[in-house]
């Protein structure tokens, strides 16, 4: 098990190094170099040269690469010439908001998926199971944009219960502002997760050990939580790890629909403003979060993976 953890950690470390390198080259591959993209394509050669000197872009590439690493290890992600701040300062607060939104949506989606999936696995071919399957497809296919607008229309404009966007200033205000974006983001994810998990659960319900459990008088709740869940959850954890980038993409759209100033919203703004240092820093962060998500999923799995199944 420890060997497995060490192996998994080194894979993650290598992925991280590759990611950092990739983003480095991405920055240097912008047409005309970073200075042009910062100053705009009509900038004078003198201005470009001055900026290149100031940013160290006139040094040899390998040296710049090492400097890039050194800065990253210090937590410096670059300087935004559009916003005139260190990108790391800029990102901190946006990242926090995004993590709150994404993790809340992820938690909600997982909880719903497990509950609905177990029920669906139990119901199988019964009418209730089919109804669940129908709604999973509908909700999975519903674009974030459409769901968001629908929710804003219903809960903000018609009922006036919740704010249509932005962020709050008190804790309660924050929570109120989060409700609709979290629901919007969680809905398609919950639909996809529960379809997958429901399928796993259904396969488990067909196994003989479920019949054995019933034959010794266990109630359905205990069979679901102590037997089926345990066996169905492992592939599901892997799926959740893999879906984190997708979650983030959904998050970008959700943040723009609800005008929620998170990382996705910032990415969208920065891309429009051609704020390349910020864009590359956000890319880097998304990559890091993805690698971490997969790592956690794998470690969780290896902890649960006590035994092989019927060989």
């Amino acid at each position: 098990m420890w060997a497995m953890i060490v192996r998994r950690l080194s894979v993650s470390a290598i992925s991280l190094a590759l990611l950092v390198t990739l983003v480095f080259f991405m920055i240097h591959a912008t047409p005309g170099g970073p200075a042009y993209s910062i100053l705009g394509s009509h900038a004078s050669p003198q201005a470009v040269a001055a900026l290149n000197r100031q940013m160290g872009l006139d040094r040899p590439l390998p040296e710049q690469y090492l400097i890039w690493w050194a800065h990253l290890l210090e937590g410096r992600l670059g300087y935004s010439y559009i916003q005139h701040v260190e990108v790391s300062h800029l990102i901190g607060v946006y990242l926090e908001r995004t993590l709150i939104l994404d993790l809340a949506a992820l938690g909600l989606a997982i909880a719903v998926a497990i509950g609905v999936g177990l029920l669906q696995g139990y119901l199988a071919e019964r009418i209730g199971g089919r109804i669940i399957g129908f709604f999973q497809i509908v909700f999975y296919a519903m674009p974030v944009f459409f769901t968001g607008i629908l929710l804003i229309y219903a809960f903000s404009m018609q009922l006036d219960w919740l704010p249509p966007g932005g962020v709050g200033h008190t804790l309660a205000g924050h929570a109120r502002h989060l409700v609709l974006p979290v629901l919007t983001l969680a809905l398609p994810i919950a639909a996809g997760f529960s379809r997958y998990f429901g399928h796993q659960a259904r396969e488990e319900y067909r196994q003989d050990y479920v019949r054995t459990a019933r034959a010794r008088g266990l109630c359905e709740w205990r069979i679901a939580t102590h037997h089926v869940l345990r066996n169905a959850v492992r592939p599901f954890i892997t799926l959740v790890g893999m879906m984190i980038p997708v979650l983030f993409v959904g998050g970008v759209l959700t943040e723009s629909v609800f005008n929620y100033p998170g990382l996705g919203w910032l990415l969208w703004r920065s891309a429009l403003d051609q704020d390349y240092p910020t864009v590359s820093a956000i890319t880097l962060i998304i990559g890091v979060l993805t690698i971490l998500g997969n790592l956690i999923a794998d470690l969780l799995n290896s902890m649960l993976d006590v035994r092989v199944r019927y060989e």
Partner: peptide
């Protein structure tokens, strides 16, 4: 149904055909 369930295991036990699948593999 819940009362009948309580009799299973306590008044009547059962063993089935395929012992390879009859036990939960992860407990």
């Amino acid at each position: 149904p819940a009362q009948w369930r309580r009799l299973r295991g306590r008044q009547v036990g059962a063993v089935f055909q395929n012992p390879l699948a009859a036990l939960n593999p992860s407990l």
